[in-house]
């Protein structure tokens, strides 16, 4: 990422494939490529064939995707094949005697458990409170991560002062905070939201500060030579350059937020999906346990899809390939 090759005709980076990756994620999978793309900035994503004949179509998706997958609904349908197969396999193993109903209840039993919880109103309570904790914690954590990441990414002084400490704090395993949080913040909502915020903070902080350090210095210098500085310089050059990294960081942060939520709820709560997990375990309700896991998968995917919508909007706005 830190190539500053003065002889090259266009700003480019070692990460030449990032543009292809961006094109694929835009339509196909929503979360899988987020990790791969972290650190790739549009400034660095100029393709190697910069000298291509003008007017020729951008080589966005046509090269990397077979014909049958050009339609988004087709992609969606194909993505459903595996889950359906999984349910079928699950059903087979739960009915043919391989596992006892306590070990592996039938899919229909899990559905029934869900229906039962839905009618008693508990389902919405658990789902609602968990989602609320994740969203509030994610907003606080990623907001702070953006702020501190920007500060330490832009200012060598702030970096020298703050980076070692934040690095050490990041090294503390998440669960180690739980006893302290219970002691300081109490067993209520605040401790859980704080833990989720801690989980969401670090991915954003790390990706943003690293990406800002690696914005093409040539571009910054050129913009400075045209009189841009301060906030204007930031919003004109650095921010668009690190936007893909910011979004990768946000997606990782959201995944971490759900992870930390379950950790928080497992350890001391009376509602939420994590509570549903422990409670079901204690009462031998494997059907509810599986239900909680399925719900976590669905909710995680849904919230990630929301970020995917935001990502596609930014890609349209700041695409390096043009929107004509």
């Amino acid at each position: 990422m830190s190539t500053h090759d003065t002889s090259s005709a266009a700003p480019r980076s070692s990460d030449g494939a990032s543009r292809e990756a961006a094109g694929v994620t835009a339509v196909a999978t929503l979360s899988d490529d987020a990790v791969k793309r972290s650190g790739a900035s549009p400034a660095a994503a100029a393709p190697d064939d910069a000298a291509r004949e003008p007017g020729s179509p951008a080589p966005a998706n046509s090269r990397t995707r077979p014909g049958a997958l050009r339609k988004s609904w087709a992609v969606g349908l194909i993505g459903l094949i595996l889950p359906v197969l999984l349910v079928l396999v699950w059903h087979t193993f739960s009915t043919n005697g391989t596992f006892s109903p306590v070990q592996l209840p039938r899919p229909s039993a899990v559905l029934a458990a869900g229906w039962e919880l839905l009618q008693s109103g508990d389902l919405w309570l658990h789902v609602g409170i968990s989602t609320q904790r994740v969203i509030v914690g994610f907003l606080i954590g990623s907001g702070l991560g953006l702020l501190l990441g920007a500060l330490l990414g832009l200012s060598p002084w702030a970096r020298a002062i703050g980076s070692p400490t934040i690095g050490a704090l990041r090294a503390v395993p998440s669960l180690a905070w739980v006893p302290l949080l219970l002691l300081w913040v109490g067993i209520g909502e605040n401790s859980k939201v704080t833990l989720v915020a801690i989980g969401a903070f670090f991915p954003v902080y790390t990706t943003v500060s690293a990406a800002l350090r690696h914005v093409d210095r040539h571009l910054i210098e050129a913009a400075r030579s045209f009189g841009l500085r301060g906030v204007k310089l930031f919003t004109t050059v650095q921010l668009p350059a690190v936007l893909p990294s910011v979004i990768s960081g946000l997606r990782l942060a959201l995944a971490q937020a759900w992870l930390f939520l379950v950790a928080a709820e497992l350890l001391g709560s009376s509602m939420g999906l994590g509570f549903l997990l422990t409670d079901s375990q204690n009462n031998g309700r494997t059907d509810r346990l599986l239900l909680a896991i399925v719900l976590l998968a669905v909710l995680g995917k849904l919230t990630d899809a929301l970020l995917g919508v935001f990502e596609r909007w930014t890609q349209r706005r700041w695409s390096v390939a043009g929107t004509r």
Partner: peptide, 20 residues
């Protein structure tokens, strides 16, 4: 300091890749 009376053409184009 950076002088508004000057404009620089660099060896590389240094265009912002996300702008037209």
């Amino acid at each position: 300091e950076i002088d508004p009376r000057c404009a620089v053409g660099f060896q590389e184009p240094r265009l912002l890749p996300w702008r037209s």
